[in-house]
Design a protein around this nucleic acid. Structure first.
Lengths: 255, 255
DNA sequence: CCTCATATG
DNA sequence: CATAAGAGG
């Protein structure tokens, strides 16, 4: 069971750069995409379907903004679009597929980089999301959360921790939130598999050749319910895929 | 004395397509540009200056919209920016250089293609402009008007006159205006030199390969005071220049 | 430094 | 079918 999460920075743009060939090659069972940036016209998912995927979309209300999607080879027993809270659902940030033995929750968490107001919104979201997931876990024992968290937790998760102690995505509040979230009973698949390895990032700014110099952040995560931890077979970053300012992140579970 | 008028559809875009090399080659004495689409930052004209031109700009108030410029090898004895009527000058539609024996008035006339309101604005403009030029001629005997008129006059001035009898740029009102304007004492340099030749256009829509099929309109004109008519040595379209959806139009005067 | 929507042509 | 600004990242 290979699950991939990928912030594509515009699905149409990523498709124009060969995303589909990459999907065929990578062959995930479940593919979680963020920032699909769907426009006013519905996205054409027929080429994903031709590869054997069912498509589930949760675009934002605002055209060209945010939005998540899941492509799955197996049909889920349930699809849950959104989280039931309007201010988040208007921004297309949550989509969940429930399978027989596990669930995949795809999320695109707010970025706080555009100003104080959005950073405050992000912090509210983080609080909300932790509670929301706590509730879900009561009835969904095998939860896998994949997405662009727009946060990282430890100094080894970004290139320049010292100068970013108060940058959105690495503020003390966000680091604490991340630790608490994991303590609720989740395993960071990447860390589980790679220990304290540094220099592994999933996002690089487009500016000044940051990706070529590997000046990045690890913002995209696959967190698995601690009960699934023994089933983690592999996890990592797929840095060869270049359709976005993020790279795909994968986990293989024995399910 | 070679005068060229050219709607560049964005000066920065045209420069990125090699406009400057073309200018060096074409070597006009006076170059009238329309739709420079200047942004908030002032345009960098140093490369024109390096070619020996003085630069005169009349950008629109709104960034990225409209705007005209004249580049001249000889220094004018006067520069007149705008026409003194705010609603037109905010859109950067008129710029004039007065030389010893003649004047060059560069104009970008409104397009009416975006709706009735703008077509009405265009018709008001046409009326205003005719009066404005009548006044100018009282004191400027050698007037040359170059620009994108966004109008043509005769069936031979566009590819498909029949189906465009009521299209903006070829409405009865605009055709009549054009005839009246010439009757006031101007010579259309292109027609003077090429008679009733058809199939000579200065604009082609970007859509559906119109330029390759020469499905166009003759919207860009050089009108010279009838008193200068004997001095017209050559006139024509420079269809090899491809930096825009328009092509440059030239006249050579013996002055 | 990117993608996207929108205005305008 | 293009250019360009502007929002958002």
């Amino acid at each position: 069971m290979k699950i991939i999460t990928y912030n594509v920075n515009g699905l149409r743009s990523a498709l124009s750069k060969g995303l589909l060939d990459w999907v065929r090659e990578a062959d995930p069972d479940v593919l979680c995409l963020q920032e699909i940036k769907a426009g006013r016209e519905p996205l054409d998912v027929s080429e994903f379907e031709a590869l054997g995927y069912r498509a589930y979309l949760h675009p934002a209300h605002k055209p060209g903004y945010s939005g998540v999607a899941i492509f799955s080879k197996q049909p889920p027993k349930a699809v849950v679009v959104g989280c039931g809270t309007e201010c988040y659902d208007l921004e297309g940030r949550v989509l969940r597929l429930d399978f027989e033995d596990f669930s995949v929750l795809n999320t695109y968490m707010p970025s706080g980089t555009s100003g104080d107001e959005r950073q405050a919104f992000k912090l509210e979201w983080l609080r909300f999301f932790r509670e929301y997931v706590r509730t879900l876990r009561a009835t969904l024992p095998g939860l896998v959360i994949g997405g662009d968290f727009n946060c990282c937790q430890r100094d080894i998760d970004l290139h320049n921790a010292k100068t970013n102690q108060n940058s959105p995505g690495f503020t003390p509040a966000e680091r604490a939130w991340f630790a608490d979230f994991l303590a609720d009973g989740f395993t960071d698949a990447f860390r589980h598999h790679h220990g304290d390895a540094s220099g592994h990032y999933s996002w690089w700014t487009f500016r000044s050749g940051a990706r070529a110099r590997n000046v990045g952040w690890r913002l995209d995560h696959l967190l698995v319910d601690a009960g699934l931890q023994p089933r983690i077979k592999a996890a990592g970053h797929m840095t060869d895929a270049v359709h976005s300012d993020h790279c795909p992140v994968f986990v293989e579970l024995v399910i």
